[in-house]
Design a protein around this nucleic acid. Sequence first.
DNA 1: GCTGATCGTCAGTGTAGCTGACGATCAGTC
DNA 2: GACTGATCGTCAGCTACACTGACGATCAGC
Lengths: 149, 149
Amino acid sequence: MATDDDSGSPPPAFRLHYLLKRAHLHLATLVGQALEPYGVDPRELAALVLLTRGDALSQQDLARQLQVDRTTMVAMVDRMEALELVRRRPDPADRRKNLVEPTDHGRRIGADATRAVDSAEQRFLAAAPELSGPAFRDLLWTLGRDFRH
Amino acid sequence: MATDDDSGSPPPAFRLHYLLKRAHLHLATLVGQALEPYGVDPRELAALVLLTRGDALSQQDLARQLQVDRTTMVAMVDRMEALELVRRRPDPADRRKNLVEPTDHGRRIGADATRAVDSAEQRFLAAAPELSGPAFRDLLWTLGRDFRH
DNA sequence: GCTGATCGTCAGTGTAGCTGACGATCAGTC
DNA sequence: GACTGATCGTCAGCTACACTGACGATCAGC
């Protein structure tokens, strides 16, 4: 007789929001471990990817796209600049703005760390082998669609 | 030509942990709204349900089952006691312990708030009509199974 | 040139939970 | 029956995190 603690059903008393949080924390742990060698956290990686994808952005634009407060972005860029992942450069077209752009090192870390996170997500999803990753993404997207910050 | 912002696929750049967090935050918002009339938060409701289900528990036992620190539990019970949801009573069998037991009012709030949360979960899941709630719970349970606090 | 808005920055605030210590109490040992 | 080590509830203090509100600098529109 097997216990039903693994791969069965959760205790009925466990609320859905706890199960969601638990899955999220588990993935966050895997991603955190995957990122450890690169010295960046998920938010910094997102910034790096965003900056590598397109043109340099002002701190404000970056903050908006990542949905962080502009005062929080100051410390974020401070840290990434200290790690030589990005550079601040005054915007010639608007001297109020700092353009943030990735260094070569930053681009490299961004690409490598992205692969590490991809692999962490694969490991996370592997716990449910019958589950399609893209379908799961669509499902979560749908379930979260009314969420407003 | 429809936009694919709703009920389609998320932008490929969105990481899985963000989608999970977003779904979780959306549900947390719904649950928070559902609980507002009762003046309790999800953790307090969990405590109330636990205490109503069985015997009175010590603060420590309660903390263990809810996975909160014992020092955090002090403030939690302080608050619930002020709201007259629970009572502290010295354990006659072990004078180090405070037994925490729900008041009648606490039991009532617990039952009503549970129904409100049930309904919030239904609304949350209704965004994906083809999704089975129990199957989703099993899936999240499986995906979170290796998570250790 | 004025006026109101935006940008990056910083000091201060708030919140949440934890660490480490305390006295009181218990259980086991001699 | 005294001693030892562990457990319970409590509290002060700390940490981590992000936000509020203000500031000078700069921009755009009139």
